[in-house]
Design a protein around this nucleic acid. Sequence first.
DNA 1: TATGAATGAGGTTTCATTCAT
DNA 2: CATGAATGAAACCTCATTCAT
Lengths: 182, 182, 182, 182
Amino acid sequence: MNERKTSRKERIVNEARRLFAEKGYVDTSTKEIAVNAGVSEALIFKHFSNKDALLSHIIKAGYRKVLNSQRGMMTYTDARSFLLNMILLPHQLVSADPLFWKLQERLSHHQFSKQQHELFMKPVRQVLEKAFAELGYGNPPLEAELLLQVIDTLWKKEASGELPQSVEIARLLHNKYKLIGD
Amino acid sequence: MNERKTSRKERIVNEARRLFAEKGYVDTSTKEIAVNAGVSEALIFKHFSNKDALLSHIIKAGYRKVLNSQRGMMTYTDARSFLLNMILLPHQLVSADPLFWKLQERLSHHQFSKQQHELFMKPVRQVLEKAFAELGYGNPPLEAELLLQVIDTLWKKEASGELPQSVEIARLLHNKYKLIGD
Amino acid sequence: MNERKTSRKERIVNEARRLFAEKGYVDTSTKEIAVNAGVSEALIFKHFSNKDALLSHIIKAGYRKVLNSQRGMMTYTDARSFLLNMILLPHQLVSADPLFWKLQERLSHHQFSKQQHELFMKPVRQVLEKAFAELGYGNPPLEAELLLQVIDTLWKKEASGELPQSVEIARLLHNKYKLIGD
Amino acid sequence: MNERKTSRKERIVNEARRLFAEKGYVDTSTKEIAVNAGVSEALIFKHFSNKDALLSHIIKAGYRKVLNSQRGMMTYTDARSFLLNMILLPHQLVSADPLFWKLQERLSHHQFSKQQHELFMKPVRQVLEKAFAELGYGNPPLEAELLLQVIDTLWKKEASGELPQSVEIARLLHNKYKLIGD
DNA sequence: TATGAATGAGGTTTCATTCAT
DNA sequence: CATGAATGAAACCTCATTCAT
């Protein structure tokens, strides 16, 4: 069984992920990744044609994993519970893979990262609008936009460790949206 | 009168501001700044000991200007109008100096920038808590935190040009906080 | 019968020949050869100790083939017909194996290539001198040298595709040497 | 008087010229040039945007110098003396700047080098054709082509030091073309 | 025979910064 | 105040070659 051994490629990816997340993409040299992964610098370029390709791989892999694990959350059963899910989403995501979301937060200006995130988020907006409409809100698109902004802030702050009260905030939010009997 | 002539130092600062904001700090070389400012690269280092010192100067100057122009907004008259002011703050700030806030948005991981921003924002949190308390909200600190997060998102998105509906969002927000009509 | 199947080694040699000829030795990487030959890069080094050894093999094989097929041309019957043969030689050679001579042309500074070519050409010079002597030319060694230079140019230019008039040139040459009609 | 001091830029160019000519462009590293010129590697890139730009500069400068010094030779007075001049040209050129022509000889596959050489040689062909026509040769264009080939060989061989008899060859040639009373 | 995984050495280029003038 | 000339350090990347399987 080769379960225990992390392949060199995996080690490269893991260290790159960590370093990119902690120090940023530009401030992490390929040399540094290599040393931390305990491999030669050249090996990085055998596995990934570019430093950029390595980053892209990490991003893609991250969203793939997220999509697999979040299928339940993203499905619509009824308006209230969908809103609730969306409010809980940031905490869920970041808990499941803190490093990845820390990385995402740092990549706010990276073309490919933004694009992948939008792809991931696009379906949410539409369903949010529908949910707000069903619940009789006056301006569903604008309500959706606002909530999306809030969600966006929440995962970013939580990922960067600057929001310890994230759970309380979520509770406050679903009070505001009257998502529970109260 | 030296009103007409921008000094070389000013030109350096202006171009650096612009380039840092548009392409990012690391992706802007001192050479590039010099060329755009029409001065020699060496002159940058006569005026600022470091590339980093140049950035710090820009940040400091930016907040100094902001503080001067926003004194009115930040003062507390009554709870409702303070909340209103805070909701309008992002749009106000970004309108007054779009480039600076775009720069700030890019610098979310720069030590000094964060620190200056916190300094600028610290008083707001306290007054917000007081306001929410006066208005009888259940958990004033948490309400303050949430609103601060929203404000934070708003100026960032607006500064990066990704939130055309900022005014509508603000209106929606002050409806939610019943700042009008009630 | 193993006629139909080109062995992996042959494929390596063939692709190397082609690539070296078309892009030059230094500008062709072993990786490139391997990919084009559809084999692993490592296999190249199982068959040839060096990239340089691979080149040497190609050169040696090339001259071996040339020697076999040109035996007729190089034999001396009489002075006139030998001169004629030499004048026709460049076109003959290049027609028989264009790629190889293109490669040779590119290798004008490669030690081993030069040496092999000289080995191949050395006998010619002596016979040429003899022929010019027989024909009563004033300075046979110099005449031989001049004709060798011309021959050298002709195959190089023809191999690199820069001399479409090669046949006419040959005709002109044997007129000059009065190899016909006179 | 700053006549005695070769500027660092000149030293870079000179060493590059020498090394490119002696070992070839690809086989000369910028580090090597820097060390030989006694400057930092970075300085090369302050003066020339590329390694390739450095080469181009050398080529351009070389032809500029050649053109200036060869104006006399290239002018047409009468057919015979023009032919004579052309036959002497290789020796003339190489004597005046051996290193440059050695370099040119090595660059036979370099795009820009070839182009510059063609530019330099283009006028010659036309005049050669005219000269051969005047002298009553049967096929002037072909005669011109042949002589150009010979000229091409001569400077290449002479530049690479492989043709000690160049002067004798030239004499032989102008006998053949009956450029002298005999 | 054949390969995938791995690497050391080296290549070109960029950058912030210094210094003599 | 202002610059042109210069550099050390480091960045990303390529290449021929080795080795265990």
